[in-house]
Simulated assay, not measured.
Amino acid sequence: MSIHIPRPVDPALHPLATGNYRIATPAIEAFYELVVRCLRYRIMGALIFGPSRIGKTRAIEYVRLLLARNFPKMTSYHAQCEHKPRHAEGPFFANLLEAVGDPDPNAGSNPSKRMRLALRIREAAARAGSGTVMLFCDEAQRYNENEYEWLRDVHDALDRQQIKLFTFLVGQQELLSQKTGLQVAGKTQIVARLMVEELSFYGIRNAEDVATCLDGYDRTAWPEGSAWSFTRFYVPQAFDAGYRLVSDADLLWHAFEAAHHKANLPGQLEIPMESFARVVEIVLKESELRDAPGYSPDQALWAYAVHHCGYVQSRHATGRVLVAAA
């Protein structure tokens, strides 16, 4: 017999309904560990590179949330590097000023923008009570040599004011080629400051990775500190009777495998976080109407969700071959 269990908040406000949540993948955990290692050993710059649409932007947001929780006195920023037909100093500094919350990033001359950027970062560091600041530059393969030099200038200006800026360049595989090109050209000062460590970012590669991510839905509570995990919020009767999403890890992996092979996609299966999250959201929202003690999503529902998550369509659209690293 189905029993109605009142939920603690309006379902329309749930992070799964708003999309305002992040679940860790093994690659995101490796990204966070890299950042912490750089902080510990005072390595000022690192590259994080991988195929487009594999979840790097979501990873930055998740890592920043973790940093805010675990290092509350440290300041972090997320700059979205823009595609520009002309690499000019003004737009470069305006972009960074926007990232640090300047109210009028395009105002003033180039020297005044430089000074204002340092001032904004210094003010934020003082408010937070730490001289450590982290800058995540998303789509950083769009930078050219001049922009890396300007970024190095920002480091130097802040260093003179006893503020340590750690820069994480996040982007596509071209980032690695840029590093090699700078090394060949003898631009070691850029490499030594901004590109010391490297991390190859990847999607969800096997059923074990799927289980790690599904476990996040089973364990993450909202409201925080409550007994309402994401899974329990949508299927409380099934959850209270023992159902967990993680038990369907093999079902979900095989559903993606079947879609991958049916569409004749090249390369090994590697699931982008965006596609994965959409599948789980579809399954939980559909299951909400079917919730009962003993309920669990069947294989047909997982296959339906994979079909509607956009994975095959996005792979066809990009023509991209995802090759898992050895």
Rank of each mutant, 00 (worst) to 15 (best):
S2D: 09
E174P: 01
G108Q: 08
L65F: 05
W222F: 15
A125R: 03
R120C: 07
A227F: 09
E149A: 13
T75C: 09
V191Y: 02
Y62T: 04
F233A: 11
K113P: 01
A263I: 02
A12K: 15
F92T: 05
C38D: 12
R40N: 12
E286G: 01
E139V: 03
G171T: 05
C213T: 09
N206H: 06
A17G: 02
F136D: 07
N264T: 03
S296T: 11
Q237E: 15
L176C: 01
R120L: 01
Y202E: 09
E33R: 15
L16G: 04
Q268I: 01
L117D: 08
R127K: 14
P51V: 09
I121W: 09
F166H: 14
R127A: 12
P105G: 05
A12H: 12
R53D: 13
H83L: 06
S247T: 11
L117F: 10
A118L: 04
G186W: 08
L135D: 01
V210R: 09
N70E: 15
A99V: 04
R320E: 15
F166K: 04
A79N: 11
Q80M: 09
N264K: 14
M115Y: 08
E149N: 07
V321Q: 14
R64L: 04
L158M: 09
R142C: 02
T57P: 10
L165M: 12
Y234C: 07
L252A: 07
E33N: 14
R205A: 10
I54M: 12
A238I: 00
G186M: 07
T75H: 08
R120A: 11
L151T: 08
A227E: 15
F49T: 00
C137L: 15
A221M: 11
P103G: 11
Q172F: 00
S76Q: 13
L269V: 07
E123T: 03
F31C: 07
S2E: 09
D104S: 15
F230L: 10
I60C: 13
R160T: 05
S226C: 11
L252N: 07
G45C: 00
E89K: 13
F92D: 08
E29W: 03
H260D: 09
P236V: 06
V100E: 03
I43H: 06
V321N: 13
A192M: 02
S2T: 10
C309T: 10
E33S: 15
P8I: 05
S247A: 14
L16A: 05
A185S: 12
L182R: 09
A46I: 00
L119T: 10
P91C: 01
V36F: 06
R127V: 02
K113S: 04
D240H: 07
H308G: 03
M44P: 01
T132Y: 12
R278D: 08
P272Y: 06
D291I: 02
P26Y: 05
N106Q: 12
A17T: 15
H14Q: 08
R120W: 03
L265F: 07
L16N: 04
E224G: 10
Y311S: 10
N264A: 15
F49V: 00
W253Y: 14
P105V: 04
Y311C: 08
E197H: 13
I190Q: 11
L182G: 01
R315P: 03
A300R: 14
P72W: 06
I23G: 00
A303D: 13
L47D: 00
H78Q: 10
